[in-house]
Amino acid sequence: METPEPKLVQGGTVHGLFQIALKDRLSAAGWEALREAGLDLSKPLLPTYPLSQWLRWQRIVLADVWPDLPEDEAWRQLGHTVMQGLLGTVLGRMLGVGVRALGPQFVLFQLNRGFRGADNYVTTQVKASAPGRVELWLSDINERPTYYVGVLESVLTLSGARMPRVAILRREGPSCTYLLEWEP
């Protein structure tokens, strides 16, 4: 029997969130909690990190940056913040220019490639049902459906979508299907 590949998050994703997007937003106690949980930014970042560490670090961020928000809204905000961090990297800035030029419909059909740059375990399937309306299936959301609402809202906004809206249509085991809409 084949052993499944471990779920990993790319070091660039960690860099974008912690060294760019949250650089000035976390409290001293938050930075200490992250260090105790295995994220020591005084050392060079690794190429990849186990998903379990990434999820633990995200929970520390939720408690430190958005302690007063309902949990679903805090996850949504974290999804936006991760995207801000990724777009703050050199590669992210270059990709951001291209995404704006290509528009939302094209970009959504390329999300599988985009997720490969962030991790090794999320896959997507896209089904366009009308202009400005797409169903997007994500294979593994790790019990964070509203985190991906924030990520997808950011993707739509970045791609030039007017009045973007993201809703959760259904959850099936580890996967989730979202409805993405915008003014065509």
Rank of each mutant, 00 (worst) to 15 (best):
Q125Y: 04
R133N: 10
L55I: 11
R116D: 04
V126Y: 01
Y121S: 11
S159V: 11
V14Q: 10
G132Q: 04
Q10W: 01
L138P: 06
L69T: 01
L86K: 06
K43G: 01
R116W: 12
L62V: 08
E183V: 02
L158Y: 00
G79F: 04
L17N: 14
V126I: 11
L136R: 05
L91N: 07
Q105Y: 00
V61C: 03
W66D: 07
L62S: 06
L169Q: 12
T177S: 05
G173H: 04
A161W: 00
P131A: 02
V97C: 07
Y178I: 05
M163I: 04
L41V: 10
A28E: 14
I60F: 01
K7M: 12
V134S: 03
V82S: 09
I141K: 02
G88F: 01
W57G: 11
N112A: 08
T177H: 10
R170M: 14
V149D: 04
R116A: 13
L17S: 08
P145W: 08
L91R: 15
M83F: 08
E143S: 14
K127E: 08
H15Y: 11
M1R: 10
Q84S: 06
V107H: 07
W182N: 01
P50W: 10
H80G: 13
H80Y: 12
E73G: 01
E5S: 06
S27F: 02
A101L: 14
A167C: 06
G79V: 07
S139V: 06
A130D: 08
L51Q: 00
V97S: 11
E143V: 02
A167R: 12
A21Q: 07
P67D: 13
L95W: 02
Q110A: 13
L17C: 14
V149Q: 14
R25I: 05
G117Y: 12
A28D: 05
D40Y: 02
L39R: 02
L138G: 03
Q105W: 02
W182R: 00
L169Y: 07
N112R: 15
A37F: 09
P174D: 10
E2Y: 09
Y49F: 07
E73K: 01
L87W: 03
M1T: 04
L55G: 09
L62Q: 11
A128L: 03
L22G: 05
F18Q: 13
Q105S: 10
E71D: 14
Q10M: 04
T123E: 15
T146H: 09
S154M: 07
Q53F: 02
K7L: 15
S27I: 04
R171G: 08
F109K: 08
G11R: 09
A37D: 06
R133C: 14
Q110H: 05
